[in-house]
């Protein structure tokens, strides 16, 4: 059997995987293990990418999300297990920012622009606006509200998918629902991540 491009690519990716796994085998510090695992994830995405069809794109996204999501949960567990969850973190402690109107204006601009863009990118930009606002002001009291919004947007997104699968003739409705769902979802999730970075230094 001849060596095609696919097999050569697989060889390279598998070799990377072996190196990463051996590193994981030898590492004993928990934090380093967590970081190394993030590294190990890349070869698996590489294997999928070698498909080279649209399917690869459709599979990489879930693969990436799973890795990121589990990393997020595990880092929070790590903080708790090591007992450093309540360590004080200093925010953007610039006097001007925490008093002036500028952060509000910038955040509003980012959020409005994000909504105009819509979709995944829009969600990212709007989320950035919210994160910036919270970094400047150190507000934490809306956490559970954001959590709820995250759940609702998740439900919207899922509902849109079921319309696609079960009632394909309403695809346009589902498309719009999913577009709004992903905008909200990404915005809220980014805001949550932005908030979850330690207790404010007050």
């Amino acid at each position: 059997m001849i060596w095609q491009e696919y097999s050569v690519g697989l060889l390279v990716v598998l070799a990377c995987g072996i190196v990463a796994f051996v590193a994981l085998l030898l590492e004993w510090d928990d934090l380093h293990r967590l970081l190394l695992i993030d590294l190990v994830e890349i070869p698996s995405l590489g294997v999928i990418a070698l498909l080279g069809t649209d399917l690869a794109e459709a599979l990489i996204l879930p693969g990436l999300v799973v890795g990121i999501a589990e990393l997020l949960a595990l880092s929070q567990i790590y903080l708790h297990k090591e007992g450093i969850a309540d360590r004080k973190v200093s925010g953007l402690n610039i006097e001007v920012i925490s008093k002036a109107d500028a952060p509000v204006i910038i955040s509003v601009i980012l959020i409005v622009y994000g909504i105009v863009l819509s979709g995944f990118t829009g969600g990212g930009i709007a989320g950035l606006g919210i994160v910036f606002f919270f970094m400047a002001r150190g507000a934490k009291e809306h956490f559970s509200l954001l959590e709820m919004a995250s759940g609702v947007s998740w439900a919207l997104w899922i509902a849109a998918f079921f319309v696609f699968m079960v009632l394909p003739q309403y695809w346009f409705l589902a498309l719009m629902g999913a577009a709004i769902g992903i905008l909200l979802k990404v915005t809220v999730k980014m805001a949550l991540v932005g908030m979850m970075w330690g207790r404010p230094d007050e």
């Binding site: 459709a58 999300v65 819509s118 829009g122 998918f161 695809w171």
Partner: peptide
């Protein structure tokens, strides 16, 4: 519905919808 660079993928949407339900 997404402008610079952002896409919602057709394959994920119409044909492999269940994947996208599980992933979020």
């Amino acid at each position: 519905v997404a402008h610079p660079g952002g896409i919602i993928d057709e394959i994920l949407y119409n044909t492999r919808g269940l994947d996208t339900v599980v992933e979020p």
